[in-house]
């Protein structure tokens, strides 16, 4: 069995068909994150990743949420998000061809004889070694979530000591708003 066909820890296990990426533009008010999260949990959605960051407008934040759940209630759930007083806008970008990216840090515990193969894989995925220790290396990689999944799969034959993924962020292309 090739390494790539295994589902490695840290990659997305759920059926990618019910994976959705939703961008929520919110007023920076206390409690807004809880209110948003509660809409997801109440409708049985699982949040896979959630990125909250300041937006270009002061006083407003951007949440990018990757989630899985029943597609048939997605539209209705987004309306429930939009209804929150502190939510300015909630948009589903799942089939949008928006530009998406993610960053990951991967710490591998490795002997010197494993390094060359690890570095080859890293090079292939354009990952950078950001920490080079006696017993470990830390790689930084960015790109699409799928690319990241593939790389993590390949690396899973080594000892992945730690993995941190930023979660997906995205932006609508052209003048369309996210």
């Amino acid at each position: 069995m090739s390494a790539a066909s295994m589902i490695a820890p840290g990659t997305r296990s759920s059926d990618s068909k019910n994976m959705h990426t939703i961008s929520v533009f919110v007023a920076d008010e206390p409690g807004v994150l809880v209110r948003v999260a509660m809409v997801f949990s109440r409708r049985g959605y699982n949040i896979e990743s959630l990125v909250v960051s300041p937006s270009a407008r002061s006083g407003f934040s951007r949440m990018t949420i990757t989630c899985s759940g029943d597609t048939s209630i997605l539209e209705q759930m987004i309306k429930q998000l939009a209804k929150l007083v502190d939510v300015i806008r909630a948009v589903d970008h799942t089939d949008d061809n928006a530009y998406e990216t993610e960053i990951a840090l991967i710490k591998l515990q490795c002997d010197t004889d494993e390094r060359s193969e690890i570095l080859q894989i890293a090079e292939h995925f354009n990952a950078k070694v950001v920490d080079y220790g006696i017993e470990s290396v830390v790689l930084r990689v960015y790109g699409s979530s799928e690319k990241m999944d593939a790389m993590i799969s390949l690396l899973s034959i080594f000892k992945v000591a730690e993995l941190v993924r930023s979660g997906k962020i995205l932006m609508a292309r052209g003048i369309k708003s996210t």
């Binding site: 206390p30 409690g31 809880v34 209110r35 509660m38 109440r42 007083v85």
Partner: peptide, 16 residues
Amino acid sequence: VTGITYPVVKHSYLVR
């Protein structure tokens, strides 16, 4: 209290 009541209010405030 804001935490306990999130699901049963239209909106809420904790005054800071």
